[in-house]
Design a binder for these strands. Sequence first.
DNA 1: GTTTGTGAAACGATTCACAGCT
DNA 2: AGCTGTGAATCGTTTCACAAAC
Lengths: 177, 177
Amino acid sequence: MSSESLATRGGTTSAQVRKDLSFFGSFGKRGLGYPVADLAGKLRDILGLNRRYRLAVVGAGKIGSALVRYRGFRQRGFDIVVMFDSDPAKVGGEVEGMPVRDAERIEDYLTADPVDMGVIVVPGDQAQRVADRLVGCGVKAILNFAPAPLAVPDDVALKNVNLALELEALSFALANR
Amino acid sequence: MSSESLATRGGTTSAQVRKDLSFFGSFGKRGLGYPVADLAGKLRDILGLNRRYRLAVVGAGKIGSALVRYRGFRQRGFDIVVMFDSDPAKVGGEVEGMPVRDAERIEDYLTADPVDMGVIVVPGDQAQRVADRLVGCGVKAILNFAPAPLAVPDDVALKNVNLALELEALSFALANR
DNA sequence: GTTTGTGAAACGATTCACAGCT
DNA sequence: AGCTGTGAATCGTTTCACAAAC
């Protein structure tokens, strides 16, 4: 498949596809294009997707429970293995078959049974403290849904998702036409 | 408040804050900084946040129902007013008090009761069709959770959210340290 | 003395365009 | 003839640094 057809499918340009791929190596053949199955396999290696990841979700609220229920994560190799909340009414209960553990005991659980990534789904004012504790437990990757900028050490990967902010960006687009 | 303290709170730099604000006008006083309440009000005007927006959610699956339950949207001025699904088992039912309408009748509902934004939470292979129909109903802003690149006219604002992709980015970071 | 607003410089990312391989 | 891989050119964004305003 040519960089041009890959680009069309991915919503980008052929030059972009070639430049991006060339950063990691030379995967295509001139005059022929890229061998798709082969390329996909190599990209999965580069992205570290040929293994499963263990995730802890902190926060059993609306978004947290949706993530536990969402099948897409498991399908792609991301297993939510433990869930925490600080609300006594939720601790001890279940969310879609997943027991809700006491957030005060994060260290106990994650020391006994370490995870690869943490997902923060708590109110903004609690997010930094949760992040600190996850980092303290050796978590090296955090997905943060809380609307607060988190400070983490350089060796911890951090991605932020802010749904309200996405809607506000759409609001701006609508307000300026 | 100075651009420096705004920057610290926002996780950016003072030069960035000043450049970004200067794009829209001159809001501060030299030697003094920015009047916070005043600035916030002006930014809300610029972002079009001094009104409420009506949203349609298409897809009553795991993520779709979480969005309906999530209070953050309503708090920030985004009201989900109608929900659609194509699964006959779901149509006619409710998700957190929100009736689920037949996705085949999107046009009927949105013509009678127009919305400002559409949220697409359907499987990837149905997303483009849903987007086309929303656009046909005059929707000018779309938030897409489906893992598919959508084509929409230039005058329609589009934002994509792909949660699995965020996790894969963390995977890449972990695999390359 | 402090801090903004903004040209200019530096940086990074995208696009161009073509030599070189199939 | 077709398509990659990649330097060079272009474009957009971020950072620098300082005159002007308070």
